[in-house]
């Protein structure tokens, strides 16, 4: 029970201090709110992008064309390679006869043309379906190049143009978000750190008294860490609320718009677990800010 009373006292110290410095608390939690709201937006945008592009990624097929006269040993080598590659989900061998049948089935108007040919122009090949979560331009390029080098392989084809464009799109969203988010996070971090520093200087005498009275060093430090966590939590709660309301607003507007023009209700999918991420990020941001503040003060010799 003793530890519980101690924790309650520490929590009380931290909370009272936040209340006492309402102005700085308000400003810093607002900054955290904006940063985390953007963070939530970025996560949501990444989720939408992933959701919308998943069908495309799942339909990616890589074709490995074999040379005419490729023997069984060469086929086994290709299959072993496909079996071992983590990018490959399934594959299927398509013989020239099967390729021809499929072609005719797909384009019946060319039946007579195919019949008129003395030889089957369609090569034996493998249809390789890829694991969508691993489809990524560079690894695909490497896989294609490796297969290309195998004896008996005439060529490798995949929707390189699409893959490259998708990869670029993902890179822009991810790196753009990371850079902007990183800058904003650093801003928020220093804001929290400075609030904690101000709070420390305002309570310097109290800290000194506590220390002289025999408070454990952690009992003196913890309220400041907790203050950072509470600041982060406060900012993140505001951010999560704002994020939720923004999405509800966006969906309401979209529904209204699509109903008016197409008489259908279109809604953006909302990933509610982002709320937890926002809260978690807020707590971590607040704690890191407090750690940074105490570290800076120690380095300056003021704490």
């Amino acid at each position: 029970m003793k530890w519980l009373y101690t924790w309650l006292a520490i929590l009380q110290f931290a909370w009272m201090n936040l209340k006492r410095n309402r102005m700085t608390t308000g400003v810093s939690s607002s900054i955290i709110m904006v940063v985390l709201w953007l963070f939530g937006g970025w996560l949501q945008a990444s989720h939408w992008l992933d959701t919308w592009l998943r069908p495309y990624r799942e339909s990616f097929i890589l074709y490995v064309y074999l040379m005419e006269g490729a023997d069984d040993g060469q086929r086994v080598a290709v299959e072993r390679w496909l079996h071992e590659s983590p990018l490959v989900r399934t594959w299927q061998f398509i013989s020239p006869a099967e390729a021809r049948r499929r072609f005719v089935e797909m384009f019946p108007e060319f039946q007579s043309l195919m019949d008129s040919l003395q030889t089957n122009p369609l090569p034996a090949h493998y249809e390789v379906r890829l694991a969508p979560e691993r489809v990524e331009a560079q690894s695909l390029r490497r896989l294609a190049a490796s297969l290309q080098r195998l004896p008996g392989v005439a060529g490798v084809d995949y929707q390189q143009w699409w893959v490259e464009r998708l990869a670029t799109l993902f890179r822009v969203v991810q790196w753009g978000g990371l850079v902007v988010g990183g800058v904003l996070a650093v801003m928020a971090l220093f804001t929290v750190a400075n609030v904690i520093r101000l709070s420390f200087f305002a309570r310097r005498e109290e800290v000194q008294i506590l220390s002289l009275l025999g408070a454990h060093p952690w009992h003196v430090r913890l309220p400041f860490y907790l203050e950072g966590v509470l600041l982060g939590l406060l900012g993140s709660l505001l951010a999560a609320t704002l994020w939720f309301l923004s999405l509800q607003g966006a969906n309401w507007y979209l529904r209204k718009l699509t109903m008016a023009y197409w008489s259908v209700q279109v809604q953006l999918p909302v990933l509610y677990s982002i709320g937890q991420w926002i809260l978690g990020a807020g707590v971590i941001l607040g704690l890191l800010g407090a750690v940074l503040a105490l570290w800076m003060m120690r380095a300056e010799g003021t704490a």
């Binding site: 530890w3 006292a9 009275l213």
Partner: peptide
């Protein structure tokens, strides 16, 4: 002040 932190 101190008693609170001592868990009294």
């Amino acid at each position: 002040l101190l008693l609170r932190l001592m868990g009294v």
